[in-house]
Amino acid sequence: MSALLTARDLYRDYALDGTAVHAVHGVSLDVAAGEYVAIVGPSGCGKSSLLNLLGAIDRPTAGTVSFQGRDVSALGDRALTRFRLLHIGFVFQRFYLMPILTARENVELPMAEAGMSRPDREQRGDELLRYVGLQARGRHRPTQLSGGEQQRVAIARALANRPALVLADEPTGELDARTGAEIIALFERLNADGTALVVVTHDEELAHAARRLIHMRDGAIITQEVLAPNGSSGA
């Protein structure tokens, strides 16, 4: 498989009370098109920071991130925003839906930003809500939805502009086990339909739904393992 996303020698340092914190420390990583990668590790090991760098919502202190062969770390703010809009889908632990918009309007938001016509985005919005099993909840606001439903709306929103890669940061972190399992199943279906996935998680089940498992500690990758389709270690 060809590399969809390539990260080389990524560093991300923060200044915290005058001392430098090395959140990401020399990470190199490839994600192939259609791949399903899970990143695990203890809290504060730099998983989320790495995900932010991969998704171009943060800039590395050093190193490069390339998407389909193009170096995105060199892009200006406008181009970077456009890149995220069209190529990356984000799913957050806390869903982060716009509370003042309905479920369908939340899903339509990235499409509207991409300039899609209203009938097209309405059609696509319905399609995506059906995909995540919420066709009947389109008119509801986030506060009227359960946590699992909100996360499914967030996944639908992430898929709005048909991104090649979806990045998820603890997508089941706020959900109970049963609802979490629904999200895991949805991710598997999404991946089976061809979307590449990188998830950062503490959730064993979610991590083992992936095809490749990356272990991080102190900002660096310590091991990587390829998982068999049933979740058992293959290498």
Partner: peptide
């Protein structure tokens, strides 16, 4: 600010 950060993350441009 949180909402705005999310909008920016999912690709809504600064001018918008």
């Amino acid at each position: 600010v949180g909402e705005i950060a999310v909008m920016r993350a999912i690709g809504v441009s600064r001018p918008h």
